[in-house]
Amino acid sequence: MNTSKLLLALFRSALCCAFGLAIAGSVNAGERNAPRTASATVTMSSNPNLSGVVDLYLDGRIDAEVLGRLNTFEYLKGRNGVIVHLNSFGGSMRAGLALGRRIRELGFSTQVGVKGVSLIREEAGICESACVMLFAGGRFRLIQPDSVVGVHQFAAGDQATSQQVMADAQIFSAATINFLRDMGVSTQLFSVMAATPASAMQVLSVADQINLGLVNAGKEAAVWGIESDRGALVLKGVQSTISSTVEIQMACTARQEVSVAVMDDADGKGEVRSVELLVDGRTSAVALRQPEPMVGRTAMSDFLPGAVQLVEMQSARSVGVRLSYEGQRQSMYAIDVSAQASALMAGFVQLCHGTQKTRTVQR
């Protein structure tokens, strides 16, 4: 048998074995939550979460037909809190990449799981092979305890020639790497896929999923930078979570004082009674420079932190505010502060009024 025929035979054998092992693996993972073997359905929960979360459930084989079913929910595009719960053995890699990109375009989040019997919580599910591309497509990617997430090499179609096998391997390798990079997932995940034969399945632990960036715990990385606002320098940090977006701006006043403004999604929560600075979960009182104004859906807290508070902010891991409303209700909004952001903050404070009251950042 020549090399081309041998390669084709191996691909076909791997495809059959992978299908058999996927079915066997589903029984071990939990017979009741085993995904459908037919083309995946996409349904919306009839009992939406009281917090405004919209739950979509995708269950079954990934193929070209699923994209149309997902597009049925296009009217939810851009809405916070739309979560697609995935339960699938995989299917077409081509369809998986297209569905992953579409999920990101719609701004939906993803989680591996199925609708729970109680209707108030989700249960563990299965997401293997091409399904992982859908998982990676989520803007916010959440962990469901005990769910199974597995990857392996993609397999050629049964009718593929040896030339098609090699061409598809090159095309899908490049497409997968670009996709993962665009989704903010480590391309090391592709290395794990490539190292796992199509006849096997590499299950990713929770630690693996975190280290590879496949899950992000419901929040994007904070972005910090120096900008110019009407000729003045402003240090700005922005971070989005599945429920809100928080922005912090540090500016230098005419009196060379550092002012801090925190913008958050506080719309509809009532009148703000008081605002406190939140540093690594600890709160301290601040005096607002003006009553907290609303700009569209965003509330802004503008205050002058004290010298000690400024020092604490520069060595913090997270900074934000805690808002107290009428009726004893509270909300907390914070943004992560990386070591690089801490250095920017320290430099900005020194630039504003020459203070030396900064700590060495050790991470």
Results as ranks from 00 to 15, higher is better:
197 P>K: 14
198 A>D: 03
198 A>P: 06
198 A>Y: 06
199 S>T: 10
201 M>T: 00
204 L>P: 07
205 S>V: 04
207 A>Q: 14
210 I>W: 02
210 I>K: 14
216 N>G: 07
217 A>Q: 15
219 K>T: 13
220 E>S: 15
221 A>E: 13
222 A>T: 14
224 W>R: 09
226 I>T: 08
229 D>H: 13
231 G>K: 13
232 A>M: 06
234 V>I: 11
235 L>D: 02
238 V>I: 14
239 Q>V: 06
240 S>N: 11
242 I>M: 07
243 S>F: 04
244 S>G: 03
247 E>N: 14
247 E>K: 15
250 M>T: 06
251 A>L: 00
253 T>Q: 09
255 R>M: 01
255 R>C: 00
255 R>V: 02
257 E>M: 11
257 E>C: 11
258 V>N: 02
258 V>M: 01
260 V>I: 02
261 A>F: 02
262 V>S: 03
265 D>F: 04
268 G>E: 06
269 K>C: 04
271 E>T: 14
278 L>C: 05
282 R>H: 10
287 A>F: 01
287 A>N: 13
289 R>P: 09
292 E>F: 04
303 F>Y: 13
306 G>V: 00
308 V>Q: 13
312 E>K: 15
314 Q>R: 14
315 S>P: 08
315 S>Y: 03
316 A>T: 06
317 R>K: 12
318 S>T: 08
319 V>F: 02
320 G>E: 03
321 V>G: 01
321 V>K: 09
321 V>P: 00
323 L>N: 10
324 S>D: 14
324 S>Y: 14
325 Y>C: 01
325 Y>A: 04
326 E>K: 13
327 G>F: 06
328 Q>I: 00
329 R>Y: 06
331 S>M: 00
331 S>D: 02
331 S>G: 06
